[in-house]
Design a protein around this nucleic acid. Structure first.
Lengths: 108, 108
DNA sequence: GGAATAAATCGACAATAGTCGATATAGAAT
DNA sequence: ATTCTATATCGACTATTGTCGATTTATTCC
């Protein structure tokens, strides 16, 4: 598979993970916390969803590389991985105002 | 509904639209074209999907504000709206390296 | 006006995603 | 060791999305 397609699939995966209001809310909550992260139980309270539902969404975000999980005893500490989103922002530059109409010529 | 939630729903809609490989491929094709856009029929050829399928994906991108459509006779000319993606990039800054852990404090 | 054509819309179906309650796992505390 | 607790995983169900062929709509060209 071409490199451009690999990259595109990766970006699509990240965007799909971001494409759900509840997951964005979880991320916003995480960065708002004093230490920049939180436990699953905190998110369950804040999001008002079943614990299994919250874990499911967290898994999607982790698999997309957007969140990182760290085990602390049997608590799971989650936080946003800023670099992943920085990568996405860079990719989106391709479509940006700065980009000439054929900037992606080499990427097709 | 709070402003933050409205904004989040909007971002989720845009990201969900971006969260499909075929749609990203369509966008990449559009910006690679000599005039920065193309007709539906061009995309049908390039994407190798049924015309109805291509129109469906274009509709999703237009409704998310990512593409603009311009009628030319009975051809439909599509192109990327750069500002929409610039807005998304700006939103994502919230989670970025530059952002302190509580940058979103006011947004919750 | 009538035929030809590009694209949008419709209807059906298959595949994927979201949600929950229940169960399993694994570390902590006793 | 046993119990307790936080989270992950499973199974079922519903809702949403992706795809296609067929039809409709709108515009151009005779």
């Amino acid at each position: 598979m071409e490199l451009a397609k690999v990259k595109r699939d990766e970006v699509a995966r990240v965007c799909a993970a971001l494409g759900h209001s509840l997951r964005l809310e979880a991320m916003t909550f995480l960065i708002s916390q004093p230490h920049g992260g939180a436990y699953v139980s905190d998110l369950v309270s804040h999001l008002s969803r079943a614990q299994s539902t919250v874990s499911h969404h967290l898994k999607i975000l982790v698999e997309a590389g957007i969140l990182a999980m760290e085990s602390r005893g049997n608590w799971g500490w989650y936080q946003v991985v800023p670099t992943k989103l920085a990568d996405l922002r860079e990719y989106l530059l391709m479509f940006g105002l700065e980009a000439p109409h054929n900037a992606a010529g080499a990427l097709i």
